[in-house]
């Protein structure tokens, strides 16, 4: 028999290295001879959109088009360290580093511009970025700025549990509907509604992509993925045994972006890389409970495990009735 159920899951998650570990992102920006703003930072793009978001932040501070930003990253020869593409930290940490460096450069540009206008006696002249670069050469000033951002975390007090082990925290709430086949134990996720707090959505399309991908990973973690370690050897070491979802397994996903600005974030933004996958698991497990009354206590909730749990429940119900 096929039974349907609904469930929700809510999470909060601290991003960044946390617990007082030095979480530093450095950034260098310069105005080049073509009038482009060149941003150097060690942030790594792995598909999450760091390059896009960091360029957007730089363009916003400098007040220029996105086309005027050249982002140089992942080159240890010329980019200052911006930590790892991990801990959901690049938007918040490196975003802040980029913002601070750009603010410094903007101040320098303003001074060069003012000097130029005063010397020329043309107070109303509007200079292009290329002209500002030329003016800086004439004034023997190198328009290059560097700044750094360190996340404000502290170790937790072991006695009273107080402190700021992470900064900031990100919140999410997901709701799903599932269908459980009580004979085969197969679970199908029918619908998913994913509400994710993002601080400020710097790039909504990228955030939707992260939410959808995160839900897929969370669902896959809950229902399919099993490394099957045996004495340190991975048994399921290929895709025919290690199952991840295909397009056929994915439900429709409704992404809800919740904006509650984080005062310390770049334009209020927070990281969401990892948080987006977490709420899928509790939501699906609660929906399974709603559908067939079993509590899943081991992952993945594979068909054989579900059938076993249902049979156990039926047996105990039978005994109770007797």
């Amino acid at each position: 028999m096929k039974k349907r159920g609904k469930g929700i899951g809510a999470t909060f998650y601290g991003t960044g290295y946390g617990n007082g570990f030095p979480d530093v992102s450095n950034c260098e920006v310069e105005l080049n001879c073509q009038g482009k703003i060149v941003v150097y930072t060690g942030a790594t793009e792995v598909g999450q959109g760091a390059k896009t978001v960091l360029s957007q932040i730089a363009a916003e501070v400098m007040g220029v088009d996105l086309d005027s930003i050249v982002l140089v990253c992942e080159d240890t020869c010329c980019t200052p360290d911006a930590g790892t593409a991990a801990a959901s930290r690049q938007t918040y940490n490196t975003g802040n580093g980029v913002r601070l460096a750009c603010i410094k450069l903007k101040e320098m540009i303003k001074k060069v511009e003012e000097n130029h206008k005063r010397v020329k006696g043309l107070p109303d002249e509007i200079l292009t970025m290329k002209e500002i670069y030329e003016a800086s050469r004439a004034q023997a000033i190198i328009l290059k700025a560097r700044d750094s951002f360190t996340a404000c975390t502290s170790t937790m007090d072991e006695e009273n549990g107080q402190g700021s082990p992470y900064w900031p925290y990100t919140f999410s709430c997901y709701a799903v509907e599932v269908e459980v086949d009580t004979e085969t134990g197969r679970i199908e996720v029918l619908n998913a509604y994913c509400a994710q707090d993002v601080g400020k959505a710097i790039n909504p399309v990228l955030i939707e992509g992260q939410i959808e991908g995160g839900f897929a990973m969370g669902m896959s973690w809950t229902l399919y993925e099993d490394l099957n370690l045996n004495q340190g050897i991975i048994k399921n070491n290929n895709f025919s045994k290690y199952i991840i979802p295909t397009s056929m397994d994915m439900p429709d996903i409704c992404s809800i972006i919740v904006e509650d600005e984080e005062s310390t974030g770049p334009y209020g933004a927070k990281g969401i890389g990892e948080p987006v996958m977490l709420a899928a698991m509790p939501a699906i497990l609660n929906a399974i409970h709603d559908a067939v009354g079993i509590r899943v206590t081991k992952l993945p909730a594979s068909p054989d495990y579900i059938v076993k749990k249902i049979q156990e429940l039926d047996k105990s119900n039978l005994i109770e009735r007797k």
Binding site: E208, G213, G214, M217, F239, T246, S247, M248, M250, I253
Partner: peptide, 19 residues
């Protein structure tokens, strides 16, 4: 569309935007 790309695994996107 889902059937046509069901032989292509994607770890990042959750397939929605590809569809």
């Amino acid at each position: 569309i889902k059937r046509a790309i069901s032989g292509n695994l994607c770890r990042c996107t959750g397939y929605k935007k590809i569809e």
